[in-house]
Amino acid sequence: MYSFDIERPKSVADAVAALGADEAQPIAGGQTLIPTLKQRLASPSKLVALSGIEEMKYVRRDGDTLVIGGGTTHGTIARETAEHFPGLAGLAARIGDPAVRNRGTIGGSIANNDPSACYPSAALACGATIVTDKREIAADDYFQGMFMTALEEGEIVTEIRFPIPEKSAYMKFEQIASRFPLVGVFVAKFADKVGVGVTGASNDGVFRWSEAEQALGSNFAADAVSGLTAPDASDMISDLHGTGAYRAHLVGVMTKRAVAAAS
């Protein structure tokens, strides 16, 4: 790693102030950023560690919305959302491994927008709201392509608000070495609509599969997906783990499995 200073503010306000420094960078759980720093792919002058900010760690239900602090770890989310939103709890419980889940946070995942991260698919499928220290952003406007988001320099994801679906499930086909999804699909059924968020597949990052949303909106059954044409394989990620055509095929398979498992 290159050398840098590290600061550990106790409040969002102090973190925002610390991020005003030249080439300062926030670090959430660090489960992606620390490996990146070790490879010398980032060279911040100062890291502002968000892990000491207690006011960003919470899960609470507010009517039909589940409100989660940006600093909440995957492990906490897996435990504390199981009762109200089992689809999200199931997603969180299968990220990485137990040690990673005890450090990695939902805010870090949403801010990084790795094309294979799990949470962005749930945020898109549910129409979540991403709350920062400055504003509220609809998920549809927030995710803007691989590692690209609506966040500005130094802006921190402080909270994510998920409308709670009637039924939901997340299914991923794991790339076994990294445990990231080769393709992951989150299906969320609401009274008036169905959301389908797909991660790991597209060169443009997480996306909504609108054909499946329409088909499932009129018939919420795995069979409803069978007749659909798979998303365009030429837009899919192609690497040594799987071709674009393979990933496009997996989108349909994972969607069907998620519909069948939804609870």
Partner: peptide
């Protein structure tokens, strides 16, 4: 009390 990977956390944290 929680399991973590000590290679992926800073001492300052």
């Amino acid at each position: 009390g929680e399991l973590v990977k000590a290679c992926t956390m800073f001492a300052a944290e």
